[in-house]
Design a protein around this nucleic acid. Structure first.
Lengths: 180, 180
DNA sequence: TTCAAATAAGTTGTATACAAATAATCCAAG
DNA sequence: CTTGGATTATTTGTATACAACTTATTTGAA
């Protein structure tokens, strides 16, 4: 039987490969449909929940509000969603689908994941159960852990965190990035 | 027992959640370390393979050469890697680690995945085996499927794609893009 | 030999993705 | 009623990520 120290690197590497392949597939689907994966997820969620606040939507799809604003901008520019400023609380913006958006969502379910779905469909039920079970545990475990561990790599590489701030803009902002 | 049609959406949604959470975690780790996930993966791969061509490196880490150029630019600017134009074939650029880069890689293994690793470590071996097995099947299946299915969503949304490239390579060269 | 096709790296444009800061608004304490 | 803190969306800045294109170079075929 393998030990933990053998299994964990395997899991991470395979997760990374899945990320890359699924991302690649998603881009291809985008070329074919004109709709990106995040955009599709967004409009499907709006379709489920009627008019919804930006912040609630962001929470639902695990995206940063700043990211969602850009996605909504593009969907709105294409006439797929609308923004409405709430009259009850004027800080709030409600997004909803246009008719065109509803048509789009109705047509899209079978397209959502393309290669991933069609690939999964070829697997026997037993394998799917194994995968579903493993992923569920992974998600549970990821969401259970709230605080990121302190990860100090090396002081000379570390970028000093803002602090004083005050005026001054930019500086070594060190933003971040992505991926596994 | 659940049927396929119930399991597949579960798998996809959970995969998407894992993507989001791991990406977010990776961003946080960058704030703490100054090194992004893709950058770390890149320098670790360079560390394994000595001087390596941009194109070979891109293939190894499943990234588009255009993406890798940007990553190498930033690593070079920080004195972590060097670029050398090959004298045998002047089209080729070889990247390698600087001493600072080697020090960085030596210090980094335990930091690689942060939350994901520490979370996985809390799982019992049996769960890890379930997860590892499921992911392995998923990767095998994703790589087995070479050609993307034709995904046509709706003509009025479709963005006209650049004519067909006639012959030309690509095909399995195809690198690509983004998110679930 | 010559030149067109192929190859390698880099450039440009678009779309995520998120932290930090900002603007507008709401709300509660005094 | 006023003011300061909190909340909501947005803006700004950095870093992926990839398709399509461009430039420089190599190679192969006529």
């Amino acid at each position: 039987m393998k030990k933990k120290n053998d299994l964990i690197p395997d899991i991470i590497d395979n997760l990374r490969r899945v990320f890359q392949v699924v991302n690649a597939q998603s881009k291809r689907a985008e070329l074919a449909t004109g709709i990106t994966g995040p955009q599709l997820w967004t409009i499907k969620t709006i379709a489920e929940t009627g008019p919804i606040r930006i912040s609630d939507l962001a929470r639902k799809i695990y995206l940063h509000p700043a990211t969602l604003v850009g996605i909504i901008d593009r969907l709105e520019a294409r006439g797929i969603v609308t923004r409405t400023r709430s009259r009850v609380d004027r800080r709030v913006v409600l997004v909803d689908l246009t008719n065109a958006g509803r048509v789009l969502v109705a047509k899209s379910p079978q397209v959502a994941q393309g290669l991933l779905v069609s690939g999964l469909e070829t697997l026997p039920v037993g394998d799917l159960e194994t995968l579903a079970s493993g992923l569920k545990q992974l998600v549970t475990l990821l969401h259970a852990q709230k605080l990121p561990p302190q990860l100090i790599l090396s002081p000379e590489i570390n970028i000093p965190r803002r602090k004083i701030g005050k005026s001054s803009r930019d500086q070594n902002e060190r933003k971040e990035a992505n991926h596994v």
